[in-house]
Write a protein that binds this DNA or RNA. Structure first.
Length: 825
RNA sequence: GCCGGGGUGGCGGAACGGCAGACGCGGGGGACUUAAAAUCCUCUGCCGCAAGGCGUGCGGGUUCGAAUCCCGCCCCCGGCACCA
């Protein structure tokens, strides 16, 4: 526990900062701007250690940039719509609104206890009508641009959350809801979508983004672009055709069958009468299976022959048409060409049903025999008519040309990403501003009638239908076009809509004639630095990039990328190495820690524990190290002067420290300036742990120096002030107290960041390592600044080195100025 | 399977291709104290009495010199996964 009275100090300064408006933001200040954004939290009720782990280092960075002279905008808010509030209402009868705002109040208190320097007057709460009104406005703009549309389609449904989900919210091998881990099922529903696929290619352009590689990889993978050829097959003996998509047109001569997805519309028409019963049975099974949890990870590739044949577009050969559920109706054209020789799935399928397997790309060393596995790599074409002998990459181009020349297909691009399903059958969200009129059909609510208010008095029944559907007053309305009776859309929006543009709203959160001030956004966005968890790698970050592009196309912003720089902090696990959860009983409560150690120690430890981007178990013991450090800082800077008789004052500035080498003002200043350099560089790169380590070393040397006459010199004063300033971003309270006790009137947090003097940090002498065949044998002090040759001469002249080399022939000598000399003998 | 990130003391972690293990935790020894706490000093990778040797997941390579670069493996974490 700290030896200084941290409780009083932290309380005092938090109150003082608030009273004096220390962190109020002035958008028109002439200083260079810095927009620092951290992902706003969901108001779950408590600020847990994970929140601290992202917020406190981000706050330290805000303070650091402020001291460096930037006009820092560091806002906070609450992502306040969402299921937990509604579930609390169902379970405990608390209204979501009351529940949410009570939680927000508590979290604000906790954030203050952390000493966070947020621009509170710019706070945004998304469940406030003054915020969600603009979600509705954006929806209408999207609608106008054809980017919002309603579609009847099979969609993912979470039976626990009782709502549909976006594809991004269905995770893992067994397709569970990302929120509650329940396996999702398919439902056919009429739902609203945002057309994110219109921006698929643009979203793949990550140029200029300083983002963690894994986030880029996840987005790239999610969008799933692939280039290939889409072409038409003729059904033998019929007018019908169908299209397939392939990335391996070079293997087209290897097609020995084709497969349609069971749901493919053509199946109905082409199935031969004698195959119908079997085909129907299979389709039925497939349909049911997609609704049932996949029990087995074993993927059996089975299927059924339809009795129909397709015609190979180049060879004219008759190819049996099968249906199989390994072909997905949702991807590509819902049909494939089966090339068993060169595709693992087709190979399995062909084996199972004894379909011919042809080799059209020769594996290395192939002698013309049968394959025992599909050869999926590239190679030289064989058995491919006029294309035989060509390498795969050339053949792909030639065959694509051929397909296009014959007019049976074209080069095409497919994406794995689907449009963003935004309808939710829940209450606690933004009402979708649409009205259905018997006469006029789907009618958007006119902009001047926004917001469509979420009624307070809904019934919360987990029926699987939106509670708004049962709210007569909400449901029934008049058509904005014809004035006749009409019904409102009762679904609400995915809460990811709320978080797709909130950083613009922060700039002017109460503006009531536009979502944000376009002029201010021009000056203050894109965000200079974004921090937050990697769990949002695909959803929030991808949606935000999409939104920003639409905003750009609307002329509201002038950039495509909202967050040019992104930093993902790690995840703090419980001491047992598992994710913290109440059921495991491994939750570390930051309030308890703050009570015991104070906010400064908790902040400091979170930043010292490990590199910020790394997660890992909470180490219960380590926090005492930071507490010790702050105690030492306190003693060094604040405690009473040592008594006159205590120390060898007589030796003045050159006094010898207890047990240490001569340590004078010059050395002290050198150390001070080196520490400034180190801490400045480390903080700029979020290397809080090594910055703190440097300050720990510094404080230890100061503690020694203090006991000597050095403790009365100007160099001492400079050192103590520097330490206080360097530590201020990380531990804002203790440093503020120290700063004032050192005799200053204004806040440590408005001081300019200390600068180091390069002239002061250079050494007169350097230690040179002398190696023999790469092994360290001696260390020598030599004058600094010697060049290669001078260094070698100096080293060779040293008697110890001569002893080392006596009787040996130096074959080579490598001298690295300032570092080492290596003799190869 | 594919993609991304990692493997360094008892533990968390430091190290522009140049002294491996900074800093901290834990541990040993000591000072102060009636005692304890606090503080301070000191030691603490492994083997060895020592000289010395061995050490950054494993095996090779490049280099005067590799934790760091290259090749091939192994293991751990995260993401995606019948996407044609």
């Amino acid at each position: 526990m700290p030896g200084y009275s941290f409780r009083a100090i932290e309380k005092k300064w938090q109150a003082h900062w608030e009273e004096t408006g220390l962190y109020k933001w002035d958008p028109d200040s002439p200083k260079p701007r810095f927009y620092l954004l951290t992902m706003f939290p969901y108001p779950s009720g408590d600020l847990h250690i994970g929140h601290w782990y992202v917020l406190s280092p981000t706050d330290a960075y805000a303070r650091f940039k402020r001291m460096q002279g930037y006009n820092v905008f560091f806002p906070i808010g609450f992502d306040a719509f969402g299921l937990p509030a509604e579930n609390a209402a169902i379970k405990r009868g608390v209204h979501p609104h009351a529940w949410t705002y009570r939680n927000i109040e508590n979290m604000r208190r906790q954030m203050r206890s952390m000493g966070a320097s947020f621009a509170w007057e710019h706070e945004v709460v998304t469940c406030d009508p003054e915020y969600y009104r603009w979600n509705q406005w954006f929806f209408l703009q999207f609608y106008k641009r054809g980017l919002a549309y309603k579609k009847f389609a099979p969609v993912d449904w979470c039976p626990t959350c009782n709502t549909t989900l976006a594809r991004e919210q269905v995770v893992g091998e067994n397709r569970v809801c990302e929120r509650c881990d329940t396996p999702v099922i398919k439902k056919e529903l009429d739902q609203w979508f945002f057309k994110i696929t219109a921006y698929a290619d643009e979203l793949l352009d990550f140029s200029g983004l300083e983002w963690p590689e894994r986030v880029l990889a996840m987005q790239r993978n999610w969008i799933g672009r692939s280039e290939g050829v889409q072409f038409r097959f003729q059904v033998d003996g019929r007018e019908d055709t169908f299209e397939v998509f392939t990335t391996r047109i070079d293997t087209i001569y290897g097609v020995s069958f084709v497969v349609l997805a069971p749901e493919h519309p053509l199946v109905e028409r082409i199935t031969a009468p004698e195959r119908r019963a079997e085909v129907e049975a299979y389709r039925h099974k497939a349909a049911r299976q997609s609704e049932v949890e996949r029990l087995s990870t074993e993927k059996v590739r089975d299927g059924v022959f339809t009795g129909a044949y397709a015609v190979h577009p180049l060879t004219g050969e008759r190819l049996p048409i099968w249906i199989a559920d390994y072909v997905l109706v949702t991807y590509g054209t819902g049909a494939i060409m089966g090339v068993p020789g060169h595709d693992e799935r087709d190979f399995d399928f062909a084996r199972r049903y004894r379909l011919p397997i042809r080799v059209v790309v020769a594996p290395p060393g192939w002698q013309g025999g049968e394959l025992d596995a599909a050869y999926v790599d590239e190679g030289t074409l064989v058995n491919s008519g006029p294309f035989s002998g060509l390498p795969s990459d050339v053949a792909r181009e030639r065959l694509a040309d051929e397909i296009e020349r014959r007019g049976i297909g074209r080069r095409a691009v497919q994406y794995r990403m689907r449009d963003w399903l935004i309808s939710r059958q829940r209450y606690w969200g933004t009402p979708i501003p649409i009205v259905y009129c018997d006469r006029c059909g789907t009618v958007p609510v006119p902009e001047d009638q926004l917001p469509v208010l979420l009624p307070e008095d809904a019934e919360f029944l987990p029926t699987g239908e939106s509670p708004l559907k049962h709210h007569e007053g909400f449901l029934h309305t008049t058509c904005p076009q014809c004035g006749g009776p009409a019904q409102r859309e009762t679904d609400t929006m995915d809460t990811f809509v709320d978080s797709s543009w909130y950083w613009y709203r922060y700039l002017d959160p109460h503006k009531d004639d536009a979502p944000f001030d376009v002029e201010r956004a021009r000056r203050w966005t894109p965000v200079d630095q974004y921090t937050g968890g990697v769990e949002h790698a695909v959803m929030h970050l991808l949606y935000s990039r999409f939104f920003t592009r639409v905003l750009r196309d609307m002329g509201l912003v002038d950039h495509a990328e909202p967050f040019p720089r992104l930093f993902n902090q790690g995840i703090v696990l419980g001491p047992d190495g598992h994710r913290m959860s109440k059921s495991r009983g491994n939750v570390i409560d930051p309030d308890d820690l703050v009570e015991h150690y104070g906010a400064d120690v908790v902040r400091g430890y979170l930043m010292f524990m490990r590199p910020w981007d790394q997660g890992g178990p909470w180490q219960p013991g380590g926090i005492d190290g930071v507490a010790n450090f702050l105690n030492r800082v306190w003693r060094v800077a604040v405690d009473e002067e040592p008594a006159e008789g205590d120390v060898p004052v007589a030796a003045a500035a050159e006094a010898e420290v207890l047990g240490a080498a001569p340590f004078g003002e010059r050395e002290l200043r050198k150390l001070t300036h080196r520490t400034i350099k180190k801490v400045t560089e480390d903080l700029a790169e979020f290397h809080f742990n090594t910055a703190i380590a440097a300050m720990m070393e510094f404080s230890r040397e100061l503690a020694r120096a203090r006991r000597t006459a050095l403790g009365r010199t100007p160099a001492w004063r400079e050192a103590v002030e520097a330490l206080t300033l360097l530590l201020a971003p990380i531990c804002p309270h203790i440093t503020e107290e120290i700063w004032h006790r050192l005799g200053h009137e204004d806040s440590v947090h408005v001081q300019p960041w200390p600068k180091y003097d390069p002239a002061l940090i250079v050494d007169d002498t350097v230690e040179i390592v002398v190696q023999l065949n790469g092994r360290v044998r001696e260390r020598l002090e030599v004058p600094a600044g010697l060049d290669r040759e001078a260094l070698l001469r100096t080293v060779q002249a040293d008697p110890r080195v001569q002893a080392l080399l006596s009787g040996k022939t130096v074959r080579k000598a490598v001298a690295v100025p300032g570092r080492l000399v290596n003799f190869v003998v």
